[in-house]
Design a protein around this nucleic acid. Sequence first.
DNA 1: CAAATCCATAACCAGATCATTACATAATGA
DNA 2: TCATTATGTAATGATCTGGTTATGGATTTG
Lengths: 117, 117
Amino acid sequence: MSLAAARLDTTFAALADPTRRAIIVRLAQGPASVGELAQPFAMSQPAISRHLKVLETAGLISGGKDAQRRPRRLEAQPLAEATAFLEAFRAFWETRFTELDQVLEDLKAQTNEGDVP
Amino acid sequence: MSLAAARLDTTFAALADPTRRAIIVRLAQGPASVGELAQPFAMSQPAISRHLKVLETAGLISGGKDAQRRPRRLEAQPLAEATAFLEAFRAFWETRFTELDQVLEDLKAQTNEGDVP
DNA sequence: CAAATCCATAACCAGATCATTACATAATGA
DNA sequence: TCATTATGTAATGATCTGGTTATGGATTTG
């Protein structure tokens, strides 16, 4: 498997958890400490620390140091790569949606076939 | 957790495997039978069938019927939703890359400081 | 210095994941 | 009908995941 593919593995795996996605969304607005990141969740602090570890291993976040705090910041590269992978399918699904629209229109036209004008 | 979030869970989890991503890439070019999908991989047929089950459970593919074949086709909706999630971060990482470019430029300018003109 | 704050790590457990082999079933065709 | 083709399902086992509690280290503050 290529290196880029291995990176997509860990990136998508990291994105597959709702807690981690919420953390990412939060970090998109700026760095935050572990405590701040943990606050919205009904979950122990070690659980959050482990989610952060997963995100860090995936390269999605990086950590700084500020007194006792260990503020995390979001990293751009893996998100950009995952987006690029999915963007490659845009042509595919836009076509599909257009086809579906057509089907629905045809269906509607057919339903109205016997209507008075 | 919202329904949309649950869907992103299974979609991203499905995308976290290289075999499944390759299957998706293949199916973007049109439907294919299980045998055709299995052919590129050094893996047993049941293993492929299970990957297909994962993809189907995630709603990423659907199955048809043609004699003994069970051709699969790619579905648009989950891919579109995952793309939409990641697109929301585009502004973030494009800004980050611009900042990085700036850092690199500054670094270069600084390196050339003592150069003769 | 002692207490409190912030966070990481270890040990543990239940359940999910991903592969294997062996077998079953459905459709085709000689 | 019988062999072949195409595919799904079951049983099994190793590893990964995601949570918990317990504990320890570093830093700030009283």
